[in-house]
């Protein structure tokens, strides 16, 4: 069963992302970085996760001056709504 993981906190301050990655299945899951979760774009915890499985809300990144690299997908909140329907379940990590 595929899961869309919404990560809303910075891994530099909380361990939500680390716990998320304990459950993460890189074959079928994806991560969306929301709010302070955008700070995780450059965190070492995500270094080994395939970039095609990582999304970030671009408004939230721009607000924090976080640059989304070309191989990471920046999406809008409207696109996030569509993304929900591509996965069986959603977990919010906050």
């Amino acid at each position: 069963m595929s899961i869309l993981h919404l990560v809303r906190t910075s891994a530099y301050q909380h361990d939500d992302l680390a716990q998320c990655l304990q459950l993460f299945n890189d074959q079928i899951d994806a991560i969306v970085l929301i709010d302070d979760g955008c700070y995780n774009l450059t965190h070492s915890l995500l270094a080994n996760i395939e970039k095609k499985n990582i999304f970030a809300i671009y408004e939230h990144c721009d607000a924090r001056a976080m640059i989304v690299s070309s191989n990471q997908e920046a999406i809008s909140l409207a696109q996030l709504t569509k993304l929900f329907f591509s996965y069986d379940s959603v977990i919010t990590w906050q």
Partner: peptide, 17 residues
């Protein structure tokens, strides 16, 4: 274990954290 924990969680339709 982590793998078993992940597998078991995926058997549920809704996860509330």
């Amino acid at each position: 274990t982590e793998q078993e924990f992940s597998d078991k969680l995926r058997q549920h339709k809704t996860v509330l954290r």
